[in-house]
């Protein structure tokens, strides 16, 4: 949820909350869970993919992706004008 959407209290601010933070948070949490899960991988689980640490690598990739979303949302925040539905410089 971006601060701007809260300041513009009311007037046609549909689409003003920032989905990028939601995506970043969910993928980031998944990343953490997978990185932790890889310590719990049993031999049998690892053998499924020939010893490849699937959880670890996917987890790290998800953490990097999450970071990209946070940085993007920070660098190009959504600006909601008080009087209109337009949401500009949202990185579109």
């Amino acid at each position: 949820m971006s601060e701007q959407s809260q300041q513009s209290s009311g007037r046609r601010a549909a689409g003003a909350f920032d989905i990028r933070n939601f995506i970043g948070l969910l993928l980031g949490l998944y990343g953490v869970i997978l990185v932790v899960a890889q310590f719990l991988d049993s031999e049998e689980q690892l053998a499924k993919a020939d010893g490849l640490r699937v959880n670890l690598w996917t987890g790290l990739a998800l953490l990097v992706t999450a970071l990209v979303f946070f940085v993007w949302a920070r660098l190009r925040p959504i600006v909601v004008p008080e009087d209109g539905p337009e949401g500009h410089s949202d990185g579109s």
């Binding site: 959407s5 009311g10 046609r12 601010a13 549909a14 689409g15 003003a16 909350f17 989905i19 539905p85 337009e86 949401g87 949202d90 990185g91 579109s92």
Partner: peptide, 19 residues
Amino acid sequence: SVSSSIDFFLSGRSLPAWV
């Protein structure tokens, strides 16, 4: 963010293109 029928049915015609 839903205050009118256009908000509900067409997101107030306000979403960025990548979304």
